[in-house]
């Protein structure tokens, strides 16, 4: 499929073929199916769309999904930075194991994570046994959602911050040292601002992933409408009631948020490149 877009600077062959395959597969698998969501959601008109997408139950679900995702991403920013710092800057026994473990939420199926977390935090679980009698139940409520999303989002901040932190040159820190800054001042005034775009990117990625997360949450959440029902679950419920348009409407809202986050990520990327050339 020869392309009309000129390949300016390369004599390498295969441009047409590779680009053609790419665009074809992309359209078939991603673009066309996604457009179905938008079309279907409006199939009964704006009124029905708004009724479904902005119903009180849906609003409660968005609040939970996005709120928990934001909270979990924030927690991961703090601890993810800690883990990245320790991995990049220190040598200690078990460092390689720690580094390898970070990707576990990436590799582990979400349903497995879901039942494992529930096993831990339910009142019969190792941690739940202590927390529930103390009045701090985590499972079967919004706290459980935050816990699951913290698990899911953990690798994002660590993996985005690690390479940037590793690149902070010795010279920069030595310069701060010769200018009289204490270690703490150097961290807050020099190192932290330098890695801020990476932190923000990690936050956005963890947030986007957490907002749409399903498998790891539905076991530990409780799933009660208006209280502990996440937006993806609401979509599934609508589907089971054959309310395709309603499900699509809520999916639209989720997609729009996803795209907004993607757009934000793009801007962050450029901010980073511009300021730290």
């Amino acid at each position: 499929m020869p392309s009309a877009i000129p390949s300016r600077s390369s004599p390498l062959p295969g441009f047409g073929l590779s680009l053609g395959i790419t665009i074809l597969w992309l359209s078939l698998i991603v673009l066309i199916p996604l457009s179905a969501v938008f079309v279907k959601s409006l199939s009964h008109g704006w009124g029905a769309f708004l009724a479904a997408a902005a119903s009180p139950r849906a609003l409660a679900a968005y609040k939970l999904s996005f709120g928990a995702a934001a909270l979990a991403a924030a927690v991961n920013c703090i601890f993810g930075l800690l883990v990245a710092w320790v991995l990049v800057r220190y040598r200690f026994a078990g460092r390689r194991l720690l580094g390898a473990l970070i990707d576990l939420p990436f590799a582990l199926p979400t349903a497995v994570a879901g039942i494992a977390l529930t096993a831990l935090y339910a009142d019969t679980g190792v941690i739940g046994r202590i927390l529930v009698p103390a009045g701090l139940p985590i499972a079967y409520g919004p706290a459980g959602v935050v816990m699951a999303l913290t698990f899911i989002g953990l690798p994002f901040v660590v993996r985005t911050v690690e390479p940037v932190l590793a690149q902070v040159s010795n010279e920069i820190e030595e310069a701060a040292l010769t200018l009289g800054a204490s270690r703490l001042q150097t961290f807050f005034r020099v190192i932290l601002p330098t890695i801020a775009p990476a932190l923000a990117t990690g936050f956005a990625l963890a947030f986007a992933r957490g907002a749409g997360e399903y498998g790891s949450v539905i076991f530990i959440a409780g799933n009660m409408p208006f209280k502990s029902e996440i937006a993806p679950l609401l979509i599934v419920t609508q589907l089971e009631e054959y309310n395709y348009a309603g499900a699509a409407a809520i999916a639209c809202v989720m997609l729009l948020i996803s795209f907004a986050v993607l757009f934000l990520l793009n801007i962050l990327q450029r901010w980073q490149e511009r300021r730290f050339a």
């Binding site: 010279e171 310069a175 010769t178 800054a181 601002p193």
Partner: peptide
């Protein structure tokens, strides 16, 4: 002492003025 590094070691997220003022700002 004042130290000048081979690769400048300027703080990329600060303006020129903020860079120069750094030694005074952290006193």
């Amino acid at each position: 002492i004042g130290f000048v590094f081979q690769h400048y070691a300027l703080f990329g997220h600060m303006t020129v003025a903020e860079n120069i003022a750094f030694g005074l700002a952290v006193m």
